[in-house]
Design a protein around this nucleic acid. Structure first.
Lengths: 261, 261
DNA sequence: CGTGCTGTTGAGGACGATCAATGACGGTGG
DNA sequence: CCACCGTCATTGATCGTCCTCAACAGCACG
């Protein structure tokens, strides 16, 4: 995570970045969201200005108005969270490379103040809002992709609502399953702390710790500090996990993303 | 709630229905969603086929994907719910006259099976999906209105996620506040059973009952079977309720990218 | 080699679930 | 009109889950 604090890449070539490795997750994501034409991909990528070295704990997307930018996560882990007045942090959603950051504020402006925060050092790509709108005019597929991304976020909220009624072990198991799928990595490592998990699951850290011990006894998690899933199948059984809700590619209303003023 | 089981009103005139009283909530809602031009209102209303006499407990919008029509609630109370395998009912959202029913299935098709169910006798208006899409082409304001309605639903989900971490009294108080605002009536009566509240709040009926007794002691609820709020202010304090999340009339894209250093 | 953050462990207690039984109310049919 | 029934509301008792407080251990950092 070096490469200089501000690496402006205006109109850069996508393949170049793929070579650097930083663009690959984004391209994969865009593909998954239905953007396959390289003209569309290029159009999108031309909008992105890469920025490295956002430190852990920093706010990436705030909540106040006057937004000129929007972001894509390139490297690292971030979360969409809010503080309740006792200082407790509620994590609504976790973000991994390829995710769009700040969809929440475009989709749900007048909602409980929430923000996107870096959980590890992150690289992000910023996108100018006006430029994006123009690009969407010329490449409607981009609008649809954003729409789908927003739907997936919504779908995750709803699923969480269901899961929040289940006992802690299943809740945690479900959360871990979701992270595995979203990460899309092969090793079972989940790059979060128990504290993060607690805030995301809505449980106390102490209890999370005990749940983790159970999961380790069950042979689901590795017996180390690091959170590593070693038996994905068993985990899914425990969680009654069905990944369907993470795929909104079949959405009926394929409205073009409309932008008012 | 008589007036015949099937009263088809193809292309009926809006004012007529307003006279009947059945259309007023819908018109108010459409106004609130930004549809003010009478051309738009008429265009919408022409799509609606009125249907009376949906009995309590009946399914209004099923979970099978690809619904060809969706609905508007004209009279009565309905809910968006799902069953978990133990037979427990989780209520995601309550619907009152003017609400759109089945947005969930057009917006989030591949999600945990959920359905819209009548909680009292209801009158609904059904709307053909294809006809609606065509109307949206000619009246973009309709598209925006639906979009906003969907956003409000999403916003409610998210708020619930936050509230679900708070203790039962506040949770229930918050739920009641929300229902008061959504109902928009002057008397404090909330036309639900304790069972409904329990399923919506994710608490046991027994516990809901005890919470209600507390709320009555606090002078917030009337001391009768009927659920009636007699001290709205106190209730809002208890709930730390801010109605902001119920109003998504703000602009769609309000991005704010901020990076601290 | 402290200082700070994360993970771990124990003890006690609050909150809410569950089980079970009883009232209250409204509708239905005799 | 009354007896019956189903649904909803209420109450008591018990139990389990999860929280809180508190202390300590492991590890990374400067």
């Amino acid at each position: 995570m070096a490469r200089g604090k501000w690496e402006m890449v205006l109109g850069g070539n996508m393949q170049q970045h793929a070579a650097v490795g930083i663009a690959r997750p984004v391209i994969q994501r865009l593909n998954a969201l239905g953007i396959t034409a390289s003209a569309d991909l290029d159009a999108f990528w031309k909008l992105v200005k890469v920025r490295d070295g956002v430190d852990r704990g920093k706010t990436i997307v705030g909540r106040a108005g006057l937004a000129k930018h929007f972001a894509v996560l390139l490297e690292g882990v971030a979360c969409l969270s809010t503080q309740d007045k006792e200082g407790g942090r509620q994590i609504y959603a976790l973000h991994y490379p390829g995710d769009f950051l700040g969809l929440h504020s475009s989709v749900l402006p007048s909602v409980e103040p929430s923000e996107v925060q870096a959980l590890t050092s992150c690289s992000i790509g910023t996108i100018d809002r006006d430029a994006l709108e123009q690009a969407i005019q010329r490449h409607p597929a981009l609008g649809r992709a954003l729409w789908r991304a927003a739907l997936t976020e919504v779908s995750i909220f709803r699923q969480r609502l269901l899961v929040s009624r289940r006992p802690a072990l299943q809740r945690v198991a479900h959360l871990l399953c979701e992270q595995r799928v979203r990460l899309g990595t092969d090793d079972g490592v989940i790059p979060l702390t128990q504290i993060d998990i607690a805030d995301a699951a809505g449980l106390s850290v102490v209890h999370i710790n005990r749940i983790f011990q159970e999961l380790r006894e069950l042979g689901v998690l590795a017996k180390q500090r690091l959170i590593e899933v070693v038996n994905q199948e068993r985990l899914q059984e425990l969680a009654a996990f069905d990944a369907g809700y993470l795929d909104q590619s079949g959405s009926l209303f394929q409205w073009d993303l409309r932008i008012e003023d």
